[in-house]
């Protein structure tokens, strides 16, 4: 009788020992769902093919690691997050992502059914993004040495545009666009964790931003794109400031923030400008093309709430937020992990 993986069971150290249980885990869970022509679990390395001969500077390579608590949250899970997050790093660099490597560090005790749900979700996200997981590895760590599941991904993509996208392209007067509301992912995960006794069903914004970046790449005046993940929108603008010495002038009432996000921030004393997004793009673009680019984003399902939120300003030595009343606030760099306040 064929002895396969026990789907009602839990990950044990035997699933990492190189033997029969590990083979079952890889073939019946990972390869079964993520399988494709290039993924051969018998080989130690994958052979890649590319649609056309590659010219210089066309291949882009990125890597990312994923930890999230809880592993599954409204709007996503660590599996889809790993695909989308890595796709997004290539997408904002102007590339089409193609091939993925995947490392899974699984904690002893994780329910195999949950692991399979996450791998299925990853497979779905990969198929939707047109990417293939072509090589991978699994490790099992002892109970207490991990947080259920950590994923590490690397990906290769091909640059699809002749535009040079870099912070060095940014000029004073360029316009800053955000593709949707900020802080949804950070807040959704906090709520899903029932952190600080808060509950809610807010959806994470986690998704591929490639449709958005594809639309933006049509504009010759596009200077730079970034997905505002950890550290949020404020951190992207600080990175621009550090790299270019250019400041930014933001208009608070133009920045889209969902009511749920604003409420959670109000209760805990957080600022949505620093909360993570996983499906948004910050774009800096020539002011003459900004409104056309905004229209192009708004025509897409994930860009409906896109907004022009401010401009790059050489006269400002910092990131400045103009409040709805017309007052001014300097937006500082994020210091430490935010902690909720007393009252």
């Amino acid at each position: 009788m064929k002895k396969g993986i026990h789907r009602a069971g839990h990950i044990t150290l035997a699933h990492g020992n190189g033997g029969r249980h590990m083979r079952a885990l890889i073939t019946e869970i990972f390869a079964h769902h993520l399988g494709n022509a290039a993924l051969d679990t018998q080989c130690d390395a994958a052979t890649l093919t590319f649609p056309q001969p590659l010219a210089e500077e066309q291949l882009l390579f990125t890597t990312d690691g994923f930890t999230v608590d809880p592993l599954e949250f409204p709007g996503g899970d660590i599996g889809s997050l790993a695909i989308h997050g890595t796709v997004n790093d290539l997408a904002v660099s102007g590339a089409i992502p193609l091939y993925f490597s995947l490392n899974a560090f699984i904690e002893e005790g994780l329910a195999i059914a949950q692991l399979e749900r996450i791998v299925i979700s990853m497979a779905r996200a990969a198929a939707a993004c047109g990417v293939k997981v072509v090589t991978g590895d699994t490790k099992v760590v002892r109970r207490g040495e991990g947080s259920g599941l950590y994923l590490a991904t690397s990906a290769i993509g091909i640059k699809r545009s002749s535009l040079t996208l870099a912070m060095s392209q940014i000029k004073s007067g360029d316009v800053i666009i955000i593709s949707g509301s900020i802080g949804d992912h950070g807040t959704a995960v906090m709520l899903a964790r029932e952190a600080f006794g808060l509950q809610g069903a807010l959806q994470s914004d986690a998704t591929s931003v490639q449709p958005l970046t594809d639309a933006l790449l049509k504009f010759s005046g596009l200077r730079f794109m970034r997905d505002p993940t950890r550290g949020g929108l404020a951190t992207v603008l600080h990175e621009i400031h550090h790299a270019t010495s250019l400041g930014a002038h933001l208009k608070q009432d133009a920045i889209p923030v969902r009511d749920e996000v604003a409420s959670v921030c109000e209760i805990l004393g957080y600022d949505p400008l620093y909360l993570a997004c996983e499906g948004r793009v910050v774009a800096v673009i020539d002011k003459h093309q900004a409104s056309a680019a905004l229209d192009a984003l708004r025509a897409l399902p994930d860009g409906r709430n896109a907004a022009i939120i401010g401009e790059i300003a050489s006269a400002l030595p910092y990131v400045m937020l103009e409040t709805p009343l017309g007052g001014q606030r300097i937006i500082e760099e994020l210091e430490d992990e935010p902690l909720p306040r007393i009252c």
């Binding site: 910092y318 400045m320 606030r329 300097i330 500082e332 306040r341």
Partner: peptide, 16 residues
């Protein structure tokens, strides 16, 4: 976040 120094710092009051 309720401390005056932290609030001033977070709102950039050590700058221009």
């Amino acid at each position: 976040d309720e401390g005056a120094c932290r609030i001033w710092w977070a709102n950039g009051l050590h700058k221009t």
